[in-house]
């Protein structure tokens, strides 16, 4: 290859999203070749229906990871928010108000995680691990460990998770709506620049007058909020709030972000990457079910994909640096 062609290839591959799209296409062909039903309209529709509720929390997690922090509590907050809603419903609170209050409560949870992390200097890995245990515990206490009917009016469930036409569900609009807002924040708004600087080099950001504590706290709130919203959407879809819903979501969300190129060390990542990473995760999960692989294969494969993605990203980065020289 000539130097220019190589530079172009590198530039293309450097868009991490492109390499991960290629991996997704390979994965899709793989499952399709084993079981053509994988691409049947019914199955594609299922995939489109379930991805948003898990993808929305991954978007919040992405912002937080770019700001240099982790949130291991999203799975628990996901369940807590739905169950808290049912608790309010049982107390006779207006359904719409219940959801707003529950989302408010989950935002406060994010605020508390953020404040504790930032003010005490305890790594967010630990504070939100605490959150993971506490909020799951609270959810179990609320319900006594039993599923609850998510008694919301049909207009509400339609707005959150109704079917619009084939291949188009309300939850997809929420997913893409929030994705677009986050994308604009990251790429086109100064707050995005603050998030990248805070995660990329906190001391530099501080020296330039950016209130990095505030940036982080806001990202913690967004992470909790998106987790809660995902939980509400899942419950609206299932008409149920489950004490164990969202279990393992914390790792799935981090995996989606990392597969999509978000750095584990902060300072880098994109919304598009996370969307593709999320779909790839769901494709692998769904594909394994379709080819009747035992369900525990899912985590195994996701683990492998995460490692491959990280290696590819590091490799591309080094190559890019070498080419420059």
């Amino acid at each position: 290859m000539t130097l220019n062609a190589r530079k172009l290839t590198i530039a293309l591959l450097q868009r991490k999203e492109i390499s991960i799209t290629i991996i997704s296409l390979i994965t899709i062909s793989f499952f399709y070749s084993l079981q053509p039903k994988f691409l049947s309209p019914a199955n594609v529709d299922v995939l489109l229906k379930i991805t948003p509720e898990l993808g929305i929390p991954a978007l919040g997690v992405t912002l937080l990871m770019i700001a240099g922090e982790f949130d291991l509590s999203v799975g628990s907050v996901f369940a807590f928010t739905s169950l808290f809603t049912t608790l309010l419903l049982e107390m006779g609170v207006n359904p719409w108000l219940s959801v707003l209050l529950a989302l408010g409560a989950c935002s406060l949870i994010g605020l508390s995680h953020g404040l504790i992390t930032v003010k005490t200097g305890i790594p967010s890995f630990i504070t939100t691990l605490g959150g993971l245990l506490v909020w799951r515990g609270v959810a179990l206490v609320i319900t006594g460990g039993l599923p609850k009917f998510f008694a919301m009016p049909t207009e509400f469930t339609n707005i959150m998770a109704g079917k619009i036409t084939t291949f188009l569900h309300a939850q997809m609009l929420w997913f893409f709506g929030i994705a677009i807002i986050f994308l604009l924040i990251l790429e086109r708004h100064k707050f995005g620049n603050w998030i990248y600087s805070t995660g990329g080099k906190k001391d530099a950001a501080r020296a330039m007058g950016i209130n990095t504590d505030k940036v982080k706290i806001i990202c913690f709130i967004l992470s909790s909020f998106t987790a809660g919203l995902g939980g509400i959407i899942q419950s609206a879809r299932l008409n149920q709030a489950l004490p164990n819903q969202g279990e393992g979501l914390e790792f799935d969300a981090i995996a989606a972000a990392v597969i999509g190129g978000t750095s584990l060390f902060g300072g880098a990542g994109t919304i598009i990457g996370t969307i593709i990473g999320e779909y790839l995760s769901r494709i692998i999960e769904n594909g394994l079910i379709i080819i009747r692989a035992p369900s525990y294969y899912f985590r195994l494969y996701i683990g492998i994909v995460v490692i491959i993605a990280v290696i590819i990203n590091l490799y591309i980065q080094r190559r890019a640096i070498r080419i420059r020289g």
Partner: peptide, 10 residues
């Protein structure tokens, strides 16, 4: 400051 004035990935 000593080598901290920029965010390398940006």
């Amino acid at each position: 400051y000593q080598d901290i004035a920029i965010a390398p990935l940006m």
